[in-house]
Each structure stands twice: as structure tokens, then as C-alpha cells.
């Protein structure tokens, strides 16, 4: 047995020593998917005020992404516009933005932000359960290691935001024609 364990350990050591030769990887797919979805959703959205130079994504409250959003979007464009990432913690700090990713836990604060975003025609996205029903537009959830989308179409209409059919088609649940 002792011999067997030693063999395992030695094999392992060889693997580890050789490991720098392999591409490194951080396997936080959930976080990466959230970061990616922010930009990918935008391609299926029409905003009423489309005459800005920049496309702005704002994250309010805690930033789980670190520098990921900045790095991912620094060379990318959305609707032929370069992308700026803003990080804010208060509703008053939200400037002219197209997408607002909300990580706020406090529900009354979240409700205020949603209300503000609807008035400003901002696409709101969050992974908080109940977000869509509270008036948020796109809710991202992860269930059994897969992404689930819930879209509040009514809220999008109220925000003067148009969501194209392909995005609506892949959502697990679309809130449409319901009183809010």
C-alpha cells in the first residue's frame, strides 16, 4: 500500500511540475456567463435614445467581477459603440447608462433603482430572485448548473425598451400582460 501511495504522489508531482506548460484556467463559469450576457443581451435590445457616443454598462453595489468586465469589454463594441464600464454604489451616482446590473440585496433600494431605470429607459439585469416580478427587465438565474432567463416584457415596454424575438424565445419565462 505504501508503495502504491508513493507512486500516486510521484505521478502527481510530475503532473504538477509540468503544469505551467498547460494553459491556466479559472473556472468560474457562472461569473463569466453573467459578464458575457450583459453584452450579448444588448444586441437584442433597442433603446429609445440611441444617439450617444459610448455604450455604458453600470454596476450598482457590490462588484463580484473584479476587473473582468473592464478586461472583457475593453476591445469590444455594442451597436458599433465602444463600451464604458461604470461602478457605483448609490442611485444618485448612476449616470447616463444603457445597462444597469444590480447586485443590491436590499429590496427597497432595489425597487428605487428599478423605478429610476424605468424612467431613464435603462435595461436592468440582476440575478436576484423576484427581480423580474419587481419590475426588473432581465433576471438571470443558475439552477442545476444551467442558466435560466426570466424577462419582464411589460417592464421593458414601460421603459421604452424593445426586446427582439430571439431573446424572448429563449427565456424560460416571460412576464407579459400582467399588472405590475
Amino acid at each position: 500500500m505504501k508503495y502504491k501511495i508513493k507512486k500516486i504522489l510521484i505521478s502527481l508531482l510530475i503532473c504538477i511540475i509540468l503544469s505551467p506548460l498547460l494553459p491556466t484556467f479559472a473556472a468560474n463559469e457562472e461569473l463569466a456567463l453573467q459578464a458575457v450576457f450583459l453584452g450579448r443581451f444588448a444586441k437584442f435590445i433597442d433603446w429609445p435614445n440611441n444617439d450617444k457616443d459610448k455604450f455604458v454598462i453600470t454596476l450598482i453595489d457590490e462588484n463580484p467581477f473584479g476587473k473582468l468586465l473592464d478586461e472583457l469589454y475593453k476591445d469590444k463594441t455594442i451597436h458599433d459603440k465602444s463600451i464604458e464600464i461604470h461602478y457605483v454604489t448609490r442611485i444618485d451616482d448612476i449616470k447616463d447608462t444603457d445597462i444597469l446590473f444590480i447586485t443590491l440585496d436590499n429590496k427597497s433600494e432595489m425597487q428605487k433603482v428599478i423605478k429610476y431605470a424605468q424612467k431613464q429607459s435603462i435595461l436592468t439585469i440582476s440575478e436576484h430572485r423576484g427581480f423580474a416580478q419587481r419590475g426588473g427587465i432581465i433576471q438571470l438565474n443558475f439552477v442545476m448548473q444551467k442558466t435560466q432567463l426570466k424577462i419582464n416584457y411589460d417592464s421593458a415596454v414601460k421603459s421604452n425598451i424593445k426586446i427582439s424575438a430571439p431573446l424572448l424565445a429563449i427565456a424560460q419565462h416571460v412576464i407579459k400582460g400582467e399588472v405590475q
Binding site: P20, P23, T24, F25, A26, A27, N28, E29, E30, L31, A32, L33, A35, V36, F37, G39, R40, F44, G66, K67, L68, E71, L72, K76, F142, Q145, K146, T147, L149, P166, L167, I170
Partner: peptide
């Protein structure tokens, strides 16, 4: 050589090239 953020960005960059339906099929970590 292997900075953390770089690998995360590479990972996200690869995902960015997928279609929406492919993204929904991505299996996330346990």
C-alpha cells in the same frame, strides 16, 4: 506569467463568441 484576471478574461472571451442558446447550454461549476 499566469495572472488570474487574464485567464478569466480568456474564458469569458471564448464564451462571448457563443450564441445565446449555446450560452444557455453551458454547464456552470458545482
Amino acid at each position: 506569467v499566469f495572472a488570474d484576471d487574464k485567464t478569466e478574461v480568456e474564458q469569458a472571451g471564448e464564451l462571448y463568441e457563443k450564441s445565446l442558446s449555446e450560452l444557455l447550454d453551458v454547464e456552470t461549476e458545482l
